[in-house]
Amino acid sequence: MAIYSFFSFKIITLITALFGILCLGESSNFSGSFVFGDGLFDAGNNNFIATLRKSDFYPNGIDFGGPTGRFTNGKTLVDILGVLEGVNYASGGAGILNETGKIFVGRINMDAQIDNFESTRQNIISSIGLTATMQLFKKALFFTSIGSNDLLHNYLIPSILSTAYNDLVPPQEFVATLMSKFSLQLTRLHNLGARKIVVLNVGPIGCTPNQRDTNPNILLDKCVVFPNWLAQLFNTQLKSLITELTTTLEGSKLVYADFYNVMKDIIDNYSKYGFENSDSSCCYVAGRFGGLIPCGLKSKLCLERSKYVYWDPYNPSQAANDIIAKSLLDGDTNIISPINVRQLFQS
């Protein structure tokens, strides 16, 4: 499959770059990155699968030199964080549950992403041996951003298009199901060698242009209450899960990154950050907020991309990603805990 050819290229690049790092011995605290998640992190993996969730066409990537498959106008959050050598498994539309995102047809959900990492692991072991590979993973940074599609494109979509969780179970039970599954996934990553793991929570999905447009009864300047409540329910349980796993997964350093409140502060105080619009898509086709149709070839563009918080119906612009990245890199424990990304990098 094409997706594995893409990963193979990345694996060769990773191994070549890391031979030199490994030679530095114990004084080097960093050996590469492994990225898992959804469209917030996807750097082009969906280009290689049959899916309705693609962004490998103009005007996506207009500030990156051209479309790459990133769901933004320029750099993603992990690009800005300086995640250089490594492998990115993230996929737009992906979720914790395997049935999430089926409305997009193809997507690489979290279980499949970890399967791909396991293949990467075996390839690296074949090249440098088990001991060196486990040492590499011990120093590497792992990033995850997953869960928003389980809410937006599973629980919150009409039952005719979904598994009808919203008709069958209360939100508390659905979120508990997500936590149980994600706990197994993080444990599996640990068992495969991951130690330093940054886990982003779910953002304020009720503030996205998509949710504003699909809930037309809201006031013009207000986010949609229920999706944000659902995200906060998810995040509360996620934070407890991270605390629990930190104590049970030996040698792990799990970091909880509060993407929700960083993004919400940008939205609520957008002018303070230099933005002029915090509720609409810069790349738009239809809807009062430009949130009804994904960014595509027939889309119109806002005049100043750096003045918009949102690039498309769901994802931040590069300007917003810049601010979020800086918050996670050097933020205090109100934003990212127990340590920030820079401190994790140096640990």
Rank of each mutant, 00 (worst) to 15 (best):
G290R: 01
Q211I: 05
P204G: 05
Y256F: 11
V199W: 13
I267G: 13
I218Y: 06
L303S: 14
L241C: 14
S271G: 09
S278K: 01
A194L: 09
F289N: 13
S252T: 14
G193H: 04
C223Q: 04
V285L: 13
Y260S: 00
I197E: 02
L241R: 10
L254R: 00
L303W: 06
Y284C: 03
P227D: 03
Y270A: 07
N217L: 15
K196N: 08
Y260A: 00
Y260Q: 00
K272F: 14
N277Q: 02
T208G: 01
K300L: 08
L297H: 07
G206I: 04
G251Q: 03
P209K: 05
I205V: 14
T236D: 13
T243C: 12
L220A: 15
T246F: 01
K222N: 13
Y270R: 02
N210S: 11
G251H: 10
V255M: 06
T246L: 06
S240R: 01
G203F: 02
R195C: 08
A194G: 13
W229N: 13
L301P: 05
I267R: 08
L192N: 03
D279L: 13
T246M: 03
S240L: 06
T214P: 00
K222D: 12
N215T: 04
C302N: 05
N217Y: 15
E244Q: 07
G251A: 04
Y270S: 11
Q211G: 00
N201V: 01
F226I: 08
L303G: 10
C283S: 10
A231Y: 09
T243W: 08
S280N: 03
F234H: 13
E250I: 15
L245M: 15
D265L: 04
L192H: 03
R195A: 10
I293K: 06
N228Y: 05
I218G: 10
D279H: 11
N277I: 09
G206S: 00
G193N: 02
G274Y: 06
Y273L: 02
L297C: 12
V225A: 12
E276H: 09
I242F: 08
V262N: 04
Y284M: 02
W229E: 13
M263F: 12
D221Q: 14
P227W: 07
T208N: 01
V255W: 10
T248R: 15
A257F: 06
V199F: 08
F226K: 11
C223M: 08
R288E: 01
Q211M: 08
F226D: 01
L301N: 02
D265T: 03
A257W: 12
I266Y: 01
I205E: 08
K253I: 15
S278M: 11
D265E: 06
